[in-house]
Design a protein around this nucleic acid. Sequence first.
DNA 1: TGCAAGTTTGCATTCTGTGCAACAAGCTGG
DNA 2: CCAGCTTGTTGCACAGAATGCAAACTTGCA
Lengths: 216, 216
Amino acid sequence: MVTGTATSSEMTDTVVAPGRREQNKLDTRRAIAASALDLARAHGLGNFTADQVAAEAGVSRRTFFNYFHSAEEALTTTTDALLELAAAEFMARPADEPLLDAMIAALAAIAKTDNLSVCGELFRMAEGSPELMRSQLHAWERAEARIGQAVSERMGGNLNPLYLLALVGAVLSCVKAAMQVWAAAAENPQDGSAAELEDQIVGALSMLRDGFNNPR
Amino acid sequence: MVTGTATSSEMTDTVVAPGRREQNKLDTRRAIAASALDLARAHGLGNFTADQVAAEAGVSRRTFFNYFHSAEEALTTTTDALLELAAAEFMARPADEPLLDAMIAALAAIAKTDNLSVCGELFRMAEGSPELMRSQLHAWERAEARIGQAVSERMGGNLNPLYLLALVGAVLSCVKAAMQVWAAAAENPQDGSAAELEDQIVGALSMLRDGFNNPR
DNA sequence: TGCAAGTTTGCATTCTGTGCAACAAGCTGG
DNA sequence: CCAGCTTGTTGCACAGAATGCAAACTTGCA
């Protein structure tokens, strides 16, 4: 059960029928997420209800809960997309590339995400909101599982489990650290901001690769 | 407002008055946590209410919510204690010891925790319960902050922020991975289980120190 | 002893989260 | 184009979460 990763809406119509059903669902999902973000910006994080989000998104309260368990979870779609991208990038790396190189390249690509500034915003928001923090952490955890799966498959499944879990966890922790530093620095949607983030990510992962010997 | 870290209830009474107030609060807290664990074991994780926990702990529902936001959070006190211990152990390491050695030693000491088997149990429970998973992740996140603080102070505060965050995050990720592997293997409260956990932790952290070069 | 500070509790209230059944909208095949 | 199937939406109902508030009760201290 794979969540349909952007099936490249290239020309007009492709072989696979996207279907109006699928499309509508995606639209509502996006509408709800957008409304949640709006309200979070307007009223602050704990200061609005599921009712309000539903109303602003033009759906019923019940439908809101069909899509998300909470307002915070609705916000986390953005972060999820970012991590999904990382996983996709990783799987697209050439199979003969050394594992660590592939991971570094894939994760550096995170900086190319569309809603980068929103992700930074959410990172900052999460500092002051336990609920959002938990949601975000959970998103990273899910990504860890996905990427762990991908790494395992890439290596033919015969990897020491401890090595696998520790490696993927450590890598993602470094990326998280990079985003934290970057988000704290970039208060406003800067221009070259993406480049800065990429530097931070590569920097953190290089430290990891070197075994943290050199606290420059 | 520091949560009173076990102020060594050594002999009968010491100079600092623990105070009956403090003690009572700790007792209720523990009672609630214990009741939550009982009910989780008896009925499964989502299948009991705050009312029940309160009743079993001998307090009112309202008091339950004075201590915890949710049943899952009550369960997390055990994990919190484990991570608190790690932080304490780290701060007790000699100041001239190399940073990574100190961290490895401190985190290996986690295996000495009292409720080790309970921690493993919670780890396994969390796999099937998003709510508990989030709570646990949050606990690790808080520990990350605490330990990061300690590391920063130890190094005189002049550490590259990215290095600091990446290092602490990576280290804790490795420990988490170790506990995951260990918890998955140790279904029942084994005897030499603690030693196995310590091996896993040291193993994971050694990989980290070596830069994950060697996927044995 | 008696007051100040801190805790517990019940009550009221708002909001969350989910099951259910009716309804509507997209997707067949005739 | 219609009949019928599948899937998504909505309103309703209801148990439970979570929090403010004020009254009762403990503990600490002068």
